[in-house]
Nucleic acid binder design. Structure first.
Length: 611
RNA sequence: GCCGGGGUAGUUCAGUGGCAGAACGCCAUCUUGGUAAGAUGGAAGUCGGGAGUUCGAUUCUCCCCCCCGGCUCCA
């Protein structure tokens, strides 16, 4: 019988309780806080610092330090306890009773206080042997239960854990720090993560899948394929290597060509700007602490290293009188940006400190917003479908820290919602995830490890035009303020390429491949002809590489495959004699024999089609 | 930034309080080949950086840097 996802959730949540029970057996002073089920498993957050009161230094050290090495012991304890967990039993108690019971645990008390404030019934869940279910009165006594485990919980468990949970189908995976209630100002708790499935087989399959996924990790492939590197001299700032630059430039060139045809005009603007520019834009108040700052000899002069393109685009807009006839005015740029992201957040190409966006700022009249959004959606679909990538939209609304008045925000948010609805774009809600100057529609994608990333974004901005006093002359001769749409399609080129590498597992389509074809002469006898072929391909704009190494054909084929180059030409005596090239494809077992001109045609056509 | 785990040859990784190891890659020579690793030889290291303990530290201790998994943040 196939269990539903809902039941999987119940099982995972039950395992979180089992984890807490096991931890308390082994670390009686640990304070459990919360432990939900999550995708593929569960976690539970504990405060292990509780045991700091222990007298001896040695004890203190033992009890406060928990690491991966302790997980097997905890997992073993879980498996020991599981058979005795015959059932879960709900016990309802009053807030005071609950507080009494958890008086040593400030986290639980905080939860209880909150439940009480919200007028919710407080419940405990007992799990353990059938014959020692406590009643509410017993439960709240401070004495330890004879058997089983009690936790503050609103419920959602399997009925009979010992029967419903396969003890070979879960495992503890790793530990991590996590702030209590997700707030940095709160103490950091120790989170223990576990995986859980219905069967051992499913667990093993999941683990095997993750191993497979790691092979596609862009950081690993980037190194293997020589695309990019990082160096400790500039953490979070990628070095693009020759092959990576080819890929990078192909993406940018395609973007340029496409956008030029859509009426975008590219600008390039200064990378260093006086602080005053960012004061005008509002970034100084909201963002200065995360910008790199460049100082000059003059101590009154402080420059911010460009971290976003918008202020400079606004300067360009304002640099000359604009007419309604100029709108929508689409200014695009791909200047390098630097942001001082917190060190712990850096992650390969997916989160970096220096990057380029395929950015554009579109100045529109208010009644042009919707039509322009539709045009941007078209670009998104064109680009993402070209790569066969699946993405989702997210509507991000106002964050805590906003610029402008809330009414304007509400208008902007409603405008976006309406556009999404009318265009039949399903979206998820990104509450409080908007930019400080306006709400936005984000394009979300997952990396190979299942982590979600924001790719492109289309933002609506009523605030910055006001701050920059942007205006255009309308039909009737009056001055009006334009509205700005900030938009990126790829997002950052760096992040996009990271995702792209994983998407293709490094085997890029021909037009993006750093090396498109390898020429493989079998022996020295064919070198001359191979060189001719290689040269001709290069002269026709094909990125060809000649492998004239002193290796066997088998080895050359192996290297070709490992480099994930789309095509190879094997050149032996037969080929030299017949002047027909044997074309091998990365993606197919079959080879074909073609004259050089035919091969060129085939490659050029495939490149033009971006197939 | 915070919690936890790491950093040894170009790469992937073993290892040790007493001369630094393997495989692949690289270089040379031999081999001149028909579809995923031909053979032999050679070079290659500040054991992330600094300080300390020690007769002696790559190994133990402390500080710093960088990377990885999370948390938080993400214009």
């Amino acid at each position: 019988m196939k269990k539903s996802t809902e039941q999987l959730g119940l099982m995972r949540h039950s395992l979180a309780h089992l984890l807490a029970a096991a931890v308390l057996e082994l670390y009686p002073n640990a304070k459990p806080s919360i432990g939900p089920s999550i995708e593929n498993g569960f976690y539970y957050d504990f405060d292990f610092s509780a045991s700091r009161s222990a007298d001896s230094r040695r004890l203190k050290r033992e009890s406060t330090q928990i690491s991966d090495k302790d997980l097997p012991r905890i997992e073993k304890k879980m498996k020991e306890l599981l058979p005795s967990w015959e059932l879960f039993e709900r016990i309802e108690v009053t807030p005071d009773e609950a507080r009494q019971m958890f008086s040593g645990n400030p986290y639980k008390v905080e939860l209880i206080d909150e439940l009480e404030k919200n007028g919710e019934q407080i419940s405990l869940y007992y799990s353990g042997p059938r014959n020692s279910i406590p009643d509410a009165n017993e439960a709240t006594k401070l004495t330890k239960l004879q058997a089983g485990f009690l936790d503050l919980c609103r419920g959602g468990h399997v009925e009979h854990p010992s029967k419903d949970i396969d003890s070979d189908a879960f495992t503890l995976t790793h530990i991590a720090g996590a702030y209590w209630r997700g707030d940095e100002k709160n103490p950091m708790l120790t989170r223990i993560y576990g995986l859980a499935f219905n069967t051992k087989k499913e667990l093993e399959e999941h683990l095997a899948m993750q191993e497979e996924a790691k092979k596609r990790d862009h950081r690993k492939l980037g190194k293997e394929l020589g695309l990019f590197m990082f160096h400790e001299t500039s953490p979070g700032m990628p070095y693009w290597l020759p092959k990576g630059v080819v890929l990078y430039n192909e993406l940018v060139n395609f973007w340029r060509e496409d956008h030029r045809a859509r009426g975008y005009q590219e600008i390039v603007s200064p990378l260093l700007n006086k602080k005053e520019l960012y004061i005008t834009s509002g970034h100084y108040d909201h963002y200065w602490s995360e910008m790199f700052v460049a100082e000059t000899g003059d101590e009154d002069e402080e420059y911010g290293v460009k971290a976003m393109n918008c202020p400079n685009a606004h300067v360009v807009f304002a640099s000359q009188p604009r007419s309604y006839k100029d709108l929508p005015l689409r200014l695009s740029d791909t200047d390098t940006l630097h942001r001082h992201e917190r060190s712990g957040t850096l992650s390969g190409l997916l989160r970096v400190r220096s990057f380029r966006q395929d950015d554009a700022h579109i100045y529109v009249a208010e009644d042009q917003i919707e039509a322009e959004y539709q045009r941007v959606f078209e670009i998104v679909e064109r680009f993402y479908s070209l790569f066969g990538m699946s993405y989702s939209y997210r509507l991000s609304t106002r964050p805590e820290d906003i610029m402008g008045n809330p009414e304007t925000w509400t208008t902007a948010e409603n405008t976006l919602k309406k556009i999404l609805d009318e265009n039949n774009k399903p979206f998820t809600a990104g509450d409080k995830e908007g930019a400080f100057y306006g709400p936005k529609v984000d394009i979300m994608m997952k990396d190979v490890l299942g982590r979600e990333w924001q790719m492109g974004t289309i933002q609506l901005d009523f605030q910055q035009p006001r701050r920059f006093n942007l205006e255009y002359t309308d039909k009737d001769g009056t001055k009006k303020m334009p509205i700005v749409i900030h938009r990126v399609i790829y997002g950052s080129l760096e992040r996009f390429i990271g995702i792209l590498i994983e998407h293709y597992a490094g085997a890029f389509p021909l037009w993006l491949s750093p090396i498109q074809i390898k020429v493989l002469p079998i022996g020295e006898g064919q070198y001359e002809y191979a060189q001719h072929v290689h040269q001709t391909l290069k002269e026709h704009g094909i990125r060809a590489e000649l492998d004239d190494s002193n290796e066997t054909l088998g080895k050359k084929i192996r290297n070709w495959k490992l480099e994930k180059v789309p095509y190879a030409l094997v050149i032996g005596d037969k080929e030299v004699e017949s002047q027909k090239l044997k074309v091998e494809s990365r993606d197919s077992e079959k080879s074909e024999s073609l004259a050089l001109e035919k091969l060129l045609e085939k490659l050029q056509k495939e490149i033009a089609n971006k197939a």
